[in-house]
C-alpha cells in the first residue's frame, strides 16, 4: 500500500463508503521513483489520479485535473491526458508499472487545456484519440488562446512541444470501445460544462469517468451552458454507475451522490441571477453578488464565480 505521493487525504466528500473503497483497492504499488504520477486503483483494473485543486502554475506543473486509465484483457484506455507533457509522461510511466498492454485509446472528456495538454505523449505511444464530434473545432478555435494563457500560467518551458491534437475518432451520441472483455461506453452530452462534454462508463466495474461534468471541492466552471448543465445532471443520475472519477477533486467519489454539491451551486447561481434579472439589476451588479451563499463550500470560488455569474447572466437574460 505504499503510495508514491500521499493522496492529499480523501477530502471532505468521501463518506465511509469511499474509505472502504480506498482501503480495498489501494493505490498503485511502486518503488516511488520520482517520475511516476500517483494513481489510485479505485476498482479492479481501474485507476485514477487526483490533480491538485488549484490554478495551473509552474509549481504544480499543470497537474490540476483528474485523469485515469482502465486495463482490459488486451489493451489500456487512458481517460484524459493531464495538463502538461511532463505530467502525461509520468502518467504513462505509472501505467507501465501496472501493465505492458498497449495504450490503445486516449479518450478526451472535453477541450480544456488541463485535460488535453498531455495528449501527445499518449498519441506517440500509439493511442487513437477519441473525443466528441465537436472537439476538433473547439480545440482549433481556442488553440492560440490556450497556448498563450498557459505560457503565462505555467511558464514557456512547460508548454513547449504541446500540440492540441484533434480526435482521430469522434463520437456524436454513444460509442462502445472494447479493451478485451472490458467494454467502455462513451457518451456525449448536450452543452453543459462545455460543448464537447463526453463521459466514459466502465461497464464492468460501474465506474464513471465524468470529466468536468462532475466537480467536487473545486468550484464548477461554466464554459458552456448553466441551464444545459442542470438538465444533464438529471440525465447523469440515471447512469448505472456506483462511483465516479470527477474532473476535479478527489480521485473517486460515490455516485450519484457526487452530483449533489455542484447541482446545489448551479441551482443557487441560477436562482440568484433569475431574481436579479427579473428585478432589472445590471450585469455587473448581479455578478458581484450571485451565489455568494456558496462561497464557503468551494475552493477557487473567487477565481471562477464572477466569470460564471457573468456568462450565466448573459445566458439567462434570454430565457
Amino acid at each position: 500500500m505504499a503510495l508514491c505521493t500521499p493522496i492529499e487525504g480523501v477530502r471532505s466528500v468521501g463518506p465511509a463508503a469511499l474509505a472502504v473503497l480506498m482501503s480495498v483497492f489501494g493505490s498503485v504499488p511502486c518503488a516511488c521513483a520520482e517520475d511516476t504520477l500517483a494513481f489510485d486503483e479505485i476498482a479492479p483494473h481501474v485507476y485514477a489520479h487526483a490533480g491538485a485543486v488549484a490554478l495551473p502554475s509552474s509549481e504544480n506543473r499543470g497537474d490540476t485535473s483528474n485523469f485515469g486509465f482502465v486495463v482490459g484483457d488486451e489493451a489500456v484506455a487512458v481517460i484524459d491526458a493531464g495538463g502538461s507533457l511532463p505530467v502525461a509522461r509520468e502518467a504513462l510511466a505509472a501505467i507501465r508499472r501496472v501493465t505492458d498492454k498497449p495504450v490503445r485509446y486516449l479518450i478526451l472528456t472535453h477541450m480544456h487545456p488541463d485535460h488535453v495538454f498531455g495528449s501527445r505523449i499518449f498519441k506517440d505511444a500509439g493511442a487513437t484519440i477519441v473525443g466528441s464530434a465537436a472537439l476538433g473545432d473547439a480545440l482549433a478555435a481556442r488553440s492560440d488562446t490556450y497556448l498563450a494563457s498557459y505560457r503565462d500560467q505555467l511558464g514557456p518551458a512547460l508548454v513547449e512541444g504541446v500540440e492540441l491534437l484533434p480526435p482521430d475518432r469522434s463520437v456524436d451520441g454513444s460509442l462502445t470501445l472494447d479493451l478485451g472483455h472490458r467494454a467502455l461506453r462513451l457518451q456525449t452530452w448536450p452543452t453543459a460544462h462545455t460543448n464537447t462534454d463526453l463521459t466514459v462508463l466502465d461497464t464492468t466495474s460501474g465506474t464513471l469517468f465524468a470529466g468536468d461534468l462532475v466537480f467536487l471541492e473545486h468550484l464548477p466552471v461554466i464554459d458552456g451552458s448553466l441551464t444545459g448543465w442542470l438538465k444533464d445532471i438529471e440525465s447523469l443520475k440515471a447512469l448505472p454507475a456506483a462511483r465516479v472519477v470527477p474532473g476535479h477533486g478527489p480521485s473517486v467519489a460515490p455516485f450519484p451522490a457526487a452530483l449533489e454539491p455542484e447541482a446545489r451551486y448551479l441551482e443557487t447561481l441560477k436562482r440568484d441571477l433569475d431574481a436579479d434579472i427579473d428585478a432589472g439589476l445590471r450585469l455587473e451588479n448581479a455578478a458581484a453578488s450571485a451565489a455568494a451563499s456558496e462561497a464557503a463550500n468551494w475552493q477557487l470560488f473567487d477565481a471562477y464565480n464572477p466569470r460564471n455569474a457573468t456568462a450565466a447572466y448573459a445566458e439567462l437574460e434570454w430565457q
Binding site: A134, D137, T145, T191, A311
Partner: peptide
C-alpha cells in the same frame, strides 16, 4: 481571440 461562441451550433 476567445471563440465567439460557447456553442456555435446553437
Amino acid at each position: 481571440a476567445a471563440p465567439a461562441s460557447k456553442d456555435p451550433a446553437a
